[in-house]
């Protein structure tokens, strides 16, 4: 049965139909917390995507070995191990990003997208489908975070990926880099996203 799953659709659903941020509104903590710039959003997205893909694969491989009563602690251990690995690698090789993301890296452990996919998808499907599911969901998450980060950075700082395109002393909407700006930008982007996808669905 698993073989009949259309892999293309499996991949695309994470980006559009079941986009974790704009449609399912999961994982709001890092979404609102780190997206003050496009590069922060991208970095967080890629780190989360790596953990999501790896945990999806491992969970689907060991799903039959784990008694269902202890599956949640088992999943959490698997996820936490990968998060710790990501944290150490980031600290060693991209210390700049490690400092920017700070506490939000260890918090990937409790990101509900990852546990949600492990429970809802990987524990019921084979490794290949789980990998593709993780890739699609991870890309959807990364795209959403980068777009949100870019929007906030352009409006709030007059720059994109750190490149400033307004005059040094120009007044920008500082509100958008502050925490309330995250909520406002996210709300409008969600509306926009759902408006566009609703139209194309017709």
């Amino acid at each position: 049965m698993a073989e009949t799953v259309n892999q293309t659709q499996n991949f695309l659903k994470g980006i559009v139909k079941e986009n974790p941020i704009f449609v399912m509104l999961l994982g709001m903590c890092p979404t609102l917390g780190v997206t003050s710039s496009a590069s922060n959003g991208l970095g967080m997205g890629v780190a989360t995507m790596f953990v999501l893909i790896m945990s999806n694969i491992v969970v689907s491989l060991v799903k039959n070995q784990i008694p269902s009563k202890v599956r949640i602690p088992a999943f959490i251990i698997i996820i936490a191990s990968f998060v710790t690995i990501v944290e150490m690698i980031l600290e060693a090789f991209v210390p700049f990003l490690y400092e920017q993301l700070g506490i939000f890296i260890p918090l990937i452990v409790v990101n509900c997208i990852i546990l949600g996919r492990a429970e809802a998808f990987a524990s019921k499907n084979n490794a290949l489908s789980s990998l593709i599911d993780g890739l699609g969901m991870g890309l959807g998450f990364t795209l959403a975070l980068t777009i949100l980060g870019a929007t906030r950075e352009i409006l709030g700082n007059g720059s994109l990926f750190g490149l400033k395109f307004v005059a040094e002393n120009a007044n920008t909407f500082i509100l958008f880099i502050l925490p309330p700006g995250a909520f406002i930008a996210l709300a409008y982007l969600t509306v926009l996203f759902n408006k566009v996808t609703a139209k194309t669905a017709k």
Partner: peptide, 24 residues
């Protein structure tokens, strides 16, 4: 699927933590 016996639960969690500990 493995049955929910006490031994199974202990063993599976034990193995997982050992593997994760070593890889970390």
């Amino acid at each position: 699927k493995k049955k929910d016996t006490f031994m199974n639960m202990v063993i599976s969690l034990f193995v997982i933590t050992i593997i994760s500990g070593f890889s970390l």
